[in-house]
Amino acid sequence: MKFGILVNEGPYQHQASDSAYLFCKAALERGHEVHRVFFYHDGVNNATRLTEPPLDDRNIVKRWTKLAEEHKLDLVVCVAAALRRGILDENLAPGFRISGLGQLVETGIEADRVVTFGD
């Protein structure tokens, strides 16, 4: 099964990104495909490489990057939402790319299921 995932909240402030990450990991472990993870609203803040959490906390951004590397995930950050919040190519973490909202609609068309995580 091909999943599309929508993440609407930033890291740390809200559990949405954690829930989405754990869902993706479990889906991949079960042999499903994750067609795309689309970051929208404050969710674009998951993509900044400037994040530096305390050492005893999880690194949410790096965790997404690692999952993307291991499974060739397509992590897409909405350009309009990103520009509003100061997320640019120069501070984008590895594994993420900035693109248009059309990528979200396309995931809706191409994935078998879309699951939304937000506030």
């Binding site: 999943f3 869902f23 990991k25 479990a26 889906a27 079960r30 499903h32 299921r113």
Partner: peptide, 11 residues
């Protein structure tokens, strides 16, 4: 259920 169970429901 666990996250795997969540995935099963969503599939």
């Amino acid at each position: 259920i666990d996250y795997g169970g969540f995935v099963d429901l969503a599939a």
